[in-house]
Design a protein around this nucleic acid. Structure first.
Lengths: 201, 201
DNA sequence: TAAATAATCTAGCACTGTTAAGCAAAGGTA
DNA sequence: TACCTTTGCTTAACAGTGCTAGATTATTTA
């Protein structure tokens, strides 16, 4: 009776194909064009069967968010592992974060609510927490004085995140602004260095 | 025949009442709840007459955006005029910007695409340009070396804006994050001072 | 083969932005 | 006053949205 497993595998495939279809639509037509019927069209089913795999549209978005954090986590981890010193790691990680935002624009919009329809509270998603933890760990090791208080880490984390997220979202919302890539990279690296330096001063 | 003017005034009033109704709905129920029929309900008309005053829903949003920039412009101007030195002005203006974002949360979301449905390219809105110009002028006078290149101003402008917008949007999207107001104010002022100092070093 | 279960679809609800057609009241003109 | 035209506004509709209940079809089990 291996058919049980076969069916389970098929269901898993359909589930994945729903997510793939959703992503495909978003990447080609944007978030506002994503609809249940369009997803159904793409997977060659009718809309209601999607509800056999996800509770509602938000459920799909949530799963895509999870996927996004998995990619981001991988990118940041790999960037970190290329360097030894915490300062270098920090810069590499934020640049990876930056690159993720533009190479996976749609994911970023979903994950950080830039120009997005639904603003669900992403409470306790382990993938998201892993990303925070990685960044937090490196920030902690940037401090010379040890131990470092939770508050200190949190504050620096926010400082980094704010400027990077700010730069990203301005560029995502206004792709035709009069800033250039080099200018952005310059601001980005300067800002990271500045914050990093400010930690032990 | 003063009736012409009376009618024109009435039309202007209806137009304003549409905008007021829209704002009212957004403030009480959020952006996702804003619909043409709801606006019509509130002004005690039916939906189609709105199209006598605005080309479409986006037209209403555009007009609200304009209103938002008018308020923001006023706030920033007043903040600036309370101080003499450029550095003080700069800090006061960005704090005014910050305060605007939270006291007029809905406006800010509309103007800067945080968690918003429609991302229209706000091309050449004079009200928005005035805000940019005011901030740019103060940034220019922060420089000791004169004259200041357009590029220099633009870069510093972006640096300021990024960190402030980043801080704001993180707080707007995640109002229940574990950051406190004091922490935010601290980061904000530190960042402003840091950027201001970096200008002539 | 018959019954039970699973998979899928059709039809529909209430909502969205937007448009076309029509009605009724007001204005201007003879 | 009688007619005609313009204006203000409404009803009805279209095509789309997320989502659900019920019917239908296919598959598995007995």
């Amino acid at each position: 009776m291996g058919s049980k497993e076969r069916i389970l595998r098929l269901k898993e495939e359909t589930r994945t194909s729903i997510l793939d279809a959703a992503l495909n639509i978003v990447q080609t037509e944007g978030w506002q064009a994503l609809s249940m019927r369009k997803i159904a069209d793409q997977i060659e089913y009718t809309a209601p069967i999607i509800y056999e795999y996800f509770p509602n549209k938000e459920g799909i978005l949530l799963e895509l968010t999870r996927r996004g954090y998995q990619i981001l986590g991988k990118d940041i981890r790999e960037a970190r592992d290329k360097y030894e010193s915490a300062a270098d790691q920090m810069e590499a990680m934020w640049i990876a974060y930056w690159n993720f935002a533009f190479t996976h624009k749609e994911f970023y919009q979903l994950m950080y609510g830039v120009d997005m329809v639904c603003c669900t509270v992403k409470n306790s998603m382990t993938e998201a927490e892993q990303v925070s933890a990685m960044l937090g760990d490196v920030i902690e090791s940037l401090f010379i004085k040890q131990p470092v208080s939770e508050n200190d880490i949190c504050m620096k984390y926010y400082t980094y995140w704010s400027i990077i997220h700010g730069l990203i979202s301005i560029n995502l919302v206004r792709p035709n602004g009069r800033t250039t890539d080099e200018l952005n990279q310059q601001i980005l690296k300067d800002a990271i260095k500045g914050i990093t330096l400010s930690i032990n001063s």
